[in-house]
Write a protein that binds this DNA or RNA. Structure first.
Lengths: 139, 139
DNA sequence: TTCATTATTGCAACTTTTCGCAATAGCAAA
DNA sequence: TTTGCTATTGCGAAAAGTTGCAATAATGAA
């Protein structure tokens, strides 16, 4: 999924923030992988395109884009990874061996959420879960 | 739950590793919180007890103890936290307002895990989940 | 288009975490 | 107990990520 197919500029502005050159380059870099990438990989690619962009800006931008849900971030083998988010809410199944990421629809959590609400009087805020494990090929 | 009630020395040896003074102190430090603690908090407490233990050793030990499942590690608010593992797996409901933590039995995830296995051919490894949200008092 | 506001960036210093390697010390076997 | 093997530690340095603050630039209003 490329970010060119979603109006990410509007998404950033709607969230009350500004679109900048730096944010566009970080988004481009994340998308250029066509897979999940680590902060270090993204930082490296950003510097290949635009060496002047500061590393602190890249880290801050990755956190920012994740917070407004334009990127998805998860943990594989203790490493934080990023990838462009899809428009409909969903979760991820991340294979800890090959790193493959599959989507899991939000609906799968409905029963669990209902149970937590009624049995524990707790209101869970589950907007993005990354479930690690083994995919079919790696089991 | 204290580590004194489980034979952690045997658990370490059974995993093909050695029991050391440093590992015991790190285990003691983790347990002394009686709750989950961050690496920084644990490092601080270890140094209060035994200043000579190197910080690299503490980090390595936390990773090691997590790998052999003597500790649970999870992420709260982007921070990695550790706590002693209970013999029966369980999870946590963490209130983002008052910080109250409640336990959630592993059984709650049975249906979800089964669904992921059969519908997605994915084998989830759900050790310890921290679900944030709002507790009954804070809603 | 110009101006004012303030979110965002670059910078440098700082904190946190990891790494390579030589020295140390657990553990099993004699 | 002693010995030998090698897992583990301490150390110093490097890597990874964060922070405070002044300068810059994106945005809306005039």
């Amino acid at each position: 999924m490329s970010h060119h197919t979603i109006d990410y500029i509007q998404r950033i502005r709607d969230s009350g923030h500004r679109m900048t050159h730096q944010r566009q380059i970080v988004l481009d870099a994340v998308c250029s992988f066509n897979r999940h990438a680590t902060a270090a990989e993204i930082l490296k690619r950003v510097h290949e395109i635009a060496p002047a962009i500061n590393q602190a800006t890249v880290y801050r931008t990755l956190n920012f884009l994740t917070e407004i849900h334009l990127l998805f971030s998860g943990t594989i083998d203790g490493q934080t990874i990023y990838e462009i988010a899809t428009p409909t809410p969903h979760h991820h199944l991340i294979c800890r061996k090959c790193g493959h990421i599959a989507a899991l629809p939000d609906q799968c959590f409905a029963d669990l959420i209902q149970q937590i609400k009624t049995e524990y009087q707790f209101l869970p805020e589950i907007d993005h879960w990354a479930i690690t494990g083994l995919c079919a090929d790696c089991q």
